[in-house]
């Protein structure tokens, strides 16, 4: 914390000014310390999350074996006959995330290419904020939309669709993460220097070749990081899947059936009667821990890809 020194040599000796300076330095140090404590508080949030999750997860695993947790194909902790297999919930989360990726990855990537390579500045200035509204709409609204609009449409197309189904949830979660993927991918595409584009044009490449074979490969690390971040958001998404995908742990690959995701289970269990210290209460934390670890791993991977494989231009 070195301070830039002023013209100290020209000062005349004055005890009163010196005393003033001492209190001033003290005040500076106190303020610096306060600011540091606020920054450190953000670290305490992480410590808090990990400690809270760990404490109850450890009690959970003292009554349920890790092997059962990872391999039992049933999840029925709130029933008389209890099974604690995370598989149906994890499969539910991954099915919704995969469905959302099918919607959002191609749409988001093509949107990013359109905004960065084809759209005029004026069109872009209109389209980008419009798309970002999608990211600002609360997720409970997407849940309503899925249940009252998407599901009836799906039921008209595929009569076997259940009222609560993974497909409707996937579609709205996909719409929700389009702006995440398109914005971050577009940033990566625009960061490719125009000299690369001009070089390719100079060699006789068409606009299509420049976009897909020069710009996109050059920005690939940023684009993939955007995909991973978007999908990690889809896994952590809660309200839309709770409302639209149902609350039935179900190990299935059929998106038209009712399922339950990890996040939906946490909501369901906390709305129900789970007394403090009961195994039902502890499942909240075990599932929360699984969710936390999965999303954390995906976020770290996306950061690693960005820092390891980034093409440094200029």
């Amino acid at each position: 914390m070195s301070q830039p020194t002023g013209a100290a040599g020209s000062e005349v000796f004055d005890p009163a000014a010196l005393a003033h300076k001492r209190t001033r330095n003290l005040a500076e140090h106190v303020i610096g310390l306060l600011l540091f404590l606020c920054a450190a508080a953000s670290t305490l949030i992480t410590v808090g999350i990990v400690l809270v999750l760990l404490r109850e997860t450890i009690s959970f695993f003292s009554s349920v074996s890790l092997i059962d947790f990872l391999t039992d194909p049933q999840w029925t902790p709130l029933f008389q006959e209890k099974h604690f297999g995370i598989l149906p919930l994890a499969a539910g989360s991954f099915m919704v995330a995969a469905g959302a990726a099918v919607v959002a990855v191609p749409t988001g990537l093509l949107t990013a290419l359109f905004l960065s390579e084809y759209a005029s500045e004026r069109l872009r200035a209109f389209l980008k904020p419009t798309l970002e509204i999608l990211a600002g709409i609360p997720t409970v609204v997407y849940g309503y939309f899925a249940l009252t609009f998407v599901t009836p449409v799906l039921r008209a197309l595929f009569p076997s669709t259940e009222v609560y189904n993974a497909a409707a949830a996937s579609i709205v979660v996909g719409i929700m993460i389009i702006p995440t993927i398109s914005s971050l991918s577009e940033d990566a595409l625009r960061a490719v220097p125009s000299s690369l584009r001009e070089g390719a044009y100079g060699l006789g490449a068409t606009k299509l070749e420049v976009s897909t074979r020069v710009v996109l490969p050059a920005a690939l690390s940023g684009v993939i990081a955007a995909f991973i971040l978007g999908i990690s958001r889809a896994i952590g998404e809660t309200m839309a899947v709770t409302i639209a995908a149902g609350q039935m742990p179900n190990l299935t690959l059929n998106p038209l059936e009712s399922i339950e995701t990890m996040t939906a289970y946490i909501v369901q269990a906390s709305l129900g009667d789970t007394p403090h210290g009961s195994i039902g209460y502890q499942t909240l934390f075990a599932v929360g821990m699984t969710l936390f670890l999965i999303t954390l791993a995906m976020n770290i991977v996306s950061q690693l890809i960005l820092s390891r494989f980034r093409e440094a231009y200029q």
């Binding site: 992480t46 999350i49 952590g236 998404e237 909501v267 906390s270 969710l291």
Partner: peptide, 12 residues
């Protein structure tokens, strides 16, 4: 990393 933690985990 905190900015990427799902909101439900903050709820827990």
């Amino acid at each position: 990393n905190l900015a990427g933690v799902p909101s439900i985990v903050y709820g827990i």
